[in-house]
Amino acid sequence: MAEADLAGLPHLDAATLAPLIDPARTALIVVDIQNDFAGPSGLLKRVGVDMTLAEAAIDRIEAIIPAARAAGATVAFMRVVTEPETDSDALKALYARKGRPGGQAICRTADGGADYYRVAPEAGDIEIAKLLYDSFHGTDLEDQLRARGIDTLVMTGVATDCCVDATTRAGFHRGFHVFVVSDACASYEEELHTGTLKVLHKNCALLTTADAVVSAWANNAQGAPL
């Protein structure tokens, strides 16, 4: 399976990462793993978007979620959930000015586009329904995280250059320590993925890998040194 080339990007290894993502204070954030953004019958796939990079990222997310649960970390699922009446006027105008009227009609509840793809929340997880990119905007995500004593976010999902980026920046601006799992995020174009990772690392987050997160949390779950 093709994957983005992450060579040259700085990544924290498991030993360095483990003390920084204490499960009691950390949430795994799973962004927009939904039919329309990632599924084989979703809107993006139907208009010809290649899902190869997204599928590779979801493979790793599926490994990280049970590691988070076993370690006792919070798992939080973000989703775009829309109806025609909730569409942003600014977004509609933006699409129209780009010559794509109606292009904002994504992640509808009526046709299943908003449904989860390959992942699903369990009792005790956080679930957030949002209208646009930033998972904090117009939601109670921050309140739910603070109520659990969370001060650290481990970011995964799609798309790196859109909703992952917006949520990472918003979390940082709210005082959270943010780690982006570079190979458990994806854009639909490799250069957008790697470019966004470089910018996030420069400004507001540290990068790591799925293997490092799983190893760090396995160590936390066992209570043994790496």
Rank of each mutant, 00 (worst) to 15 (best):
Asp183Tyr: 00
Glu142Met: 02
Ala166Trp: 00
Thr167Ser: 15
Asn35Val: 07
Ala14Trp: 08
Pro84Asn: 10
Asp115Asn: 15
Gly124Arg: 05
Gln144His: 12
Ile106Arg: 12
Val81Trp: 12
Val154Ser: 05
Asp125Phe: 09
Arg100Met: 14
Met78His: 06
Met155Thr: 07
Ala105Ser: 13
Asp211Gln: 09
Gln144Lys: 14
Leu20Tyr: 03
Phe172Val: 01
Glu3Trp: 05
Thr26Trp: 05
Gly99Met: 08
Lys130Ile: 04
Leu132Glu: 15
Thr82Ile: 10
Lys130Phe: 02
Pro225Arg: 12
Met155Tyr: 04
His137Phe: 14
Gly39Asp: 01
Val214Tyr: 01
Asp165Asn: 13
Ala76Met: 06
Gln104Arg: 13
Glu190Tyr: 05
Gln144Glu: 14
Gln34Met: 10
Leu145Pro: 02
Pro19Leu: 01
Met1Ala: 14
Thr74His: 08
Leu206Met: 15
His11Arg: 05
Lys92His: 10
His137Asn: 13
Phe37Glu: 08
His173Tyr: 15
Asp111Lys: 07
Gly39Cys: 07
Asp115Lys: 10
Asp59Glu: 12
Gly102Trp: 04
Thr152Phe: 09
Thr160Pro: 00
Val75Leu: 04
Asn35His: 03
Ala170Lys: 04
Ala129Val: 07
Asp140Gln: 13
Ile33Thr: 07
Gln34Glu: 09
Gly195Met: 04
Lys92Tyr: 10
Pro10Phe: 03
Ala186Gly: 03
Asp59Gln: 08
Leu200Ile: 04
Gly175Phe: 06
Leu94Glu: 14
Tyr95His: 15
Ala205Asp: 00
Lys98Arg: 15
Lys92Arg: 15
Asp36Lys: 01
Leu17Thr: 05
Ala71Tyr: 06
Pro23Ala: 12
Cys185Glu: 02
His177Ile: 11
Val81Pro: 08
Tyr95Glu: 13
Ala221Tyr: 05
Leu9Cys: 02
Ala14Arg: 05
Ile128Gly: 07
Lys98Tyr: 12
Ala4Gly: 11
Thr167Asp: 01
Thr109Cys: 09
Met155Asn: 03
Leu6Trp: 02
Thr74Ala: 13
Asn35Ile: 04
Arg118Lys: 15
Ala15Met: 11
Val154Pro: 02
Leu44Val: 06
Asn203Cys: 09
Cys162Gln: 15
Ala71Gly: 07
Ile29Val: 12
Ala4Gln: 07
Val81Gly: 10
Asp5Gln: 03
Thr152Leu: 09
Arg146Val: 14
Leu53Tyr: 00
Asp59Ala: 10
Leu192Tyr: 15
Phe77Asp: 01
Ala170Pro: 06
Ser135Leu: 08
Asn220Gln: 15
Ala90Met: 13
Ile150Arg: 00
Ala57His: 01
Glu3Val: 11
Ala129Pro: 04
Leu206Phe: 12
Val154Ile: 09
Leu192His: 15
Ala129His: 09
Gln144Pro: 07
Thr74Phe: 06
